[in-house]
Amino acid sequence: MVEALTSAPPEAIDDHTLMLRVREGDIPMLGELFQRHARPLYGFFVRLTGDRAGSDDMVQQVFHRILRYRHTYRDVGSFTGWMYIIARRVLADFQRHRAQHQPPAEEPALEQLADERTHAADAAEAGDQTALLHRALATLPEDVREVIVLARFQELPYEEVARILDISLSAVKTRIHRAMKDLRAAYFRIQEIPPMGLPTATREKESA
């Protein structure tokens, strides 16, 4: 099957076949996979860490590891799922590295919450709903954030999310439900909107 597609342009080949070709040593095919996945992957990292420079770096690390570990790519299964498994390891390394190099980093992130409303008000004034959403996301515990980013922001099928997180499908569903509820609460709290209440003064300036 791989042979039959050899003459097709990379853009016309599916992820799985591209990865099989990379595995067989056709290294440049990785360029097309990067083209397709670098942006969502970056989104995954940035939503989970809020660290743009670090996320730039992690995207590259994922592709370095894909190449290095290409022999372990399975014939069955999806490229996306495998890529996110690698991405989670890269993320874990990154966080461990960050913790080692700036140990108090975790604390200020939490302290920051007290200060959050001021920032949120600024963001709302600027009509920056995305910033608010990301800020709300940042208040959630890591595992909750991860499931929501994969299932809702990255829009991966639940089966894929279950494989990536190595949990059952029903566990994914329950977790997503809880996660969405938490995110919602954080999102409205950050905007100082009581659930179903009237918008506050900061909201009235919103342009969008």
Binding site: G43, V46, V59
Partner: peptide, 15 residues
């Protein structure tokens, strides 16, 4: 809000 999220873009140098 999630639908309207501005999708994050990696830095140009990453490419």
């Amino acid at each position: 809000a999630i639908k309207r999220e501005r999708r994050p873009e990696p830095g140009a140098h990453v490419h």
